[in-house]
Measured scan of single mutants.
Amino acid sequence: MQIFVKTLTGKTITLEVEPSDTIENVKAKIQDKEGIPPDQQRSIFAGKQLEDGRTLSDYNIQKESTLHLVLR
């Protein structure tokens, strides 16, 4: 499925993911596309910070959902 990741600069990245993917996985995909190390990424969805060990389905993130990426 496709999800979108919006950065603070307003750029939107499209990722191909599975509901079973962990947040860690997703951060690795963002690193592949953007070169941002996962330890600098904070992902926010529906106002909640997403934890690395959880999966997209844990957070009820579905296709075409938009995550927000904040850098630390």
Results as ranks from 00 to 15, higher is better:
35 G>M: 05
10 G>I: 04
29 K>G: 01
26 V>G: 02
7 T>W: 12
69 L>S: 02
35 G>L: 05
9 T>V: 07
69 L>Q: 04
9 T>C: 14
66 T>A: 03
57 S>G: 09
3 I>F: 02
47 G>N: 07
56 L>P: 01
48 K>A: 09
58 D>M: 04
40 Q>R: 11
4 F>D: 00
1 M>T: 02
41 Q>W: 15
68 H>R: 08
10 G>A: 02
42 R>F: 15
37 P>Y: 09
13 I>N: 00
33 K>S: 11
47 G>W: 07
45 F>D: 03
27 K>H: 09
6 K>N: 04
1 M>G: 02
56 L>D: 01
21 D>W: 12
30 I>N: 01
53 G>E: 09
30 I>S: 03
18 E>G: 07
40 Q>A: 10
72 R>T: 12
45 F>Y: 13
8 L>G: 10
48 K>I: 14
36 I>G: 09
39 D>G: 11
50 L>Y: 03
35 G>I: 03
6 K>H: 14
28 A>K: 15
3 I>M: 01
25 N>Q: 14
19 P>N: 05
23 I>S: 02
32 D>P: 03
70 V>G: 06
11 K>M: 09
33 K>F: 10
71 L>N: 07
53 G>M: 10
55 T>L: 07
48 K>V: 14
15 L>N: 00
6 K>E: 05
40 Q>H: 13
59 Y>S: 02
36 I>N: 05
9 T>H: 12
15 L>V: 07
16 E>D: 12
29 K>N: 02
20 S>Q: 09
62 Q>N: 08
55 T>G: 00
14 T>R: 11
13 I>Q: 01
28 A>M: 14
42 R>C: 15
15 L>S: 02
41 Q>A: 10
4 F>W: 06
54 R>S: 06
66 T>W: 07
28 A>V: 10
43 S>V: 15
7 T>M: 15
53 G>T: 10
55 T>V: 05
43 S>R: 05
40 Q>F: 10
4 F>S: 03
44 I>C: 14
56 L>G: 01
66 T>D: 02
58 D>Y: 15
39 D>H: 12
17 V>R: 01
60 N>V: 03
62 Q>E: 10
2 Q>S: 09
68 H>D: 06
8 L>N: 13
39 D>E: 12
47 G>A: 04
20 S>D: 11
51 E>Y: 07
30 I>T: 02
5 V>M: 04
5 V>C: 04
26 V>D: 01
17 V>I: 04
70 V>W: 08
3 I>W: 02
25 N>C: 09
28 A>L: 14
46 A>Q: 13
2 Q>N: 10
3 I>A: 00
2 Q>Y: 13
72 R>W: 13
51 E>A: 07
19 P>Q: 07
12 T>H: 06
10 G>S: 02
21 D>N: 05
45 F>Q: 03
11 K>P: 04
6 K>V: 14
65 S>Q: 11
11 K>F: 09
10 G>C: 07
61 I>N: 02
43 S>E: 09
2 Q>H: 12
2 Q>G: 04
58 D>T: 05
39 D>A: 11
